[in-house]
Design a protein around this nucleic acid. Structure first.
Length: 112
DNA sequence: TGAATGACTCGAT
DNA sequence: GATCGAGCCATTC
């Protein structure tokens, strides 16, 4: 596993997500040129716990704004609490106003 | 070496 | 409009 792998890029993009915003696995994958490898982003997040600096994985959700990865956090409520503390409305593991807080790397970073 | 798994996504019914 | 199934690709056993 080299440091400049696909994973490192994923972490870098996730760290770019501003507070109060969230992005999706697919958006990250697409930004990295692997639109059909959204599952790999999930795997990257799985390993992100032992990566430094820490990756704000709580800002990454699936395409519908559901906290699909909350079970992988130390506490199941940690993800929701962190999002709420950043001003994101979360109800039933579902992000409210998802389109409003959604952060698209390609769009925000003015890529392409 | 082959088969199974996964924090996803898209298209079809 | 909601639900079901198949596809994708790296990692693990």
């Amino acid at each position: 596993m080299n440091g400049n792998s696909f994973y490192e890029k994923v972490y870098e993009v996730v760290r770019l997500v501003p507070s109060g915003r969230v992005t999706s696995y697919g958006a990250i994958a697409k930004y990295l040129g692997a639109a059909r490898s959204s599952r790999l982003v999930g795997w990257a997040m799985n390993v992100s716990h032992q990566v430094q600096p820490p990756v704000p994985a709580h800002r990454v959700v699936n395409r519908v704004g559901l906290l699909s990865g909350k079970a992988h956090f130390e506490d199941s409520n940690a993800m929701e609490e962190k999002l709420k503390s950043e001003g994101i409305e979360v109800l039933n593991d579902q992000i409210q106003r998802f389109q409003d807080v959604f952060w698209d790397p390609e769009k925000e970073l003015d890529f392409i």
